[in-house]
Design a protein around this nucleic acid. Structure first.
Lengths: 163, 163
DNA sequence: ATATATCGGACCGTTTCAGTCCCATATTTG
DNA sequence: CAAATATGGGACTGAAACGGTCCGATATAT
C-alpha cells in the first residue's frame, strides 16, 4: 500500500533541499543540484507552490523558496501537495453510497478512517527541518536563517546520525 | 500517497467477513455475501492464502478460513498480502545505488524509513477482530473461536499457529 | 524592450490496475 | 474408480494512472 510515487519522492528531495539551503532558487538550479530532470522538477515545484508549501517569484531573478520556516512545514504537506488529499477506499467517496447494506463493510470503512488518521499524524510530526538536518533540527535551522546557508550546505551537517 | 487500491479494500472486506462469521467458506459464497465479483474475490483470496492470512481447503466442501484467531491478525498482514512489502522510494532498492552522492538525498531516504515504520506500526495495531466487531473485539471473537473453524484448521491440533 | 523564469495545460509512451478466463490439481462423494 | 466440487497458478485484456517532456502565456527585473 504505502507506495511512494517518484513524483512525491522528488517533492521531498526538493523541499528538503530548499530547507537546507534557504533563499530563492530557480527551478533549473534546484534540478541540477538534486539530479532531477529539469522539466520534472519544474512540474513538482509548481505543485508545491500551488499547495502553499513554497512561494514562487516570477520573472528574472525569480525562483522558489519555502513558504515558512523548515520546522513549521510537515512532510504531510509536501506529500499531499503531489498526491492530493489522502484517499482511502472509494467507499469514502460520498457520491456513490451504493452497497453499504452490509454492516461489516461499513465497519471496515470506519476503520480505514482511523488508519488514515494515524498515518497523517505520523507524517505531520516530521518537519522539513528534521529531513534536512536529522538529529540537530532546531540548532541548525536557526543558524542558517541568515545568509550563510551555502557554507552550511558545503560543510554538511556536523552530526547526522541516521537511525 | 496513501492510495488504497480496490483489491486491498476487497481483501480487508473479505478478511473481515471471515472474521465475523467463522468457519470455512467457499470463494463463491464470500463473493456473494460481500458483493464482490466472484473471480475477483477468488483472486484476492488466493493471495491471502499464499500470504498466510487465511488457509484454504481444496476440493469438494473446501473453502477458506482465517489462519489464526481474528485478534491475532493485523491489518498490515492483509494489506501486505495484496500489495506486497511496503515499498518506499526506489532509492531503497539496493540494485541501483546510482546518484546518492548528495547527502541530502540519503538523509531523505533515512527518513522515509522512519515514516514507513510508523505506518507499519499503526496498521499492525489494528486487528481483524477490531474491524469485525469494533468496540467489543475480545468478547465476540472469543465466543466464536470454537465450532467448525477448528475442523478446517486441523482437527487434531488444538493450538496451531500454522500458516 | 528584452531577457528571464514561473504558470498552466497538452501530449505521449509505459506501466500498473481491475477484472476475467482457463486449465491443472486436490478432495469429497457415490 | 469416477464424477463433482473448489482452490492454485497464470495468461490475457481494456482502462486508467504514472513519469516525463514540451510549448505558449504571463509576470518581473534590468
Amino acid at each position: 500500500m504505502l507506495r511512494i510515487s517518484k513524483m512525491t519522492d522528488y517533492a521531498v528531495v526538493l523541499a528538503t533541499h530548499l530547507a537546507a539551503t534557504s533563499g530563492p532558487h530557480a527551478a533549473r538550479d534546484l534540478a541540477l543540484q538534486t539530479q532531477i530532470p529539469e522539466p520534472t522538477a519544474s512540474k513538482v515545484l509548481k505543485k508545491l507552490a500551488r499547495a502553499g508549501v513554497v512561494i514562487s517569484q516570477r520573472g528574472a531573478k525569480g525562483g522558489y523558496a519555502l513558504a515558512r520556516r523548515p520546522e513549521q512545514i510537515g512532510i504531510n504537506e509536501v506529500i499531499e501537495a503531489i498526491e492530493g488529499p489522502i484517499a482511502v477506499t472509494e467507499c469514502s467517496d460520498e457520491t456513490t453510497d451504493s452497497f453499504c447494506e452490509y454492516e461489516t463493510n461499513c465497519g471496515v470503512r470506519a476503520n480505514w478512517q482511523r488508519i488514515n488518521l494515524a498515518v497523517h499524524r505520523a507524517l505531520s510530526e516530521i518537519s522539513l527541518a528534521d529531513m534536512a538536518f536529522p538529529g540537530t533540527a532546531e540548532l541548525v535551522s536557526i543558524a542558517l536563517s541568515g545568509k550563510d546557508a551555502e557554507r552550511m550546505r558545503g560543510a554538511g551537517t556536523p552530526n547526522n546520525d541516521v537511525h
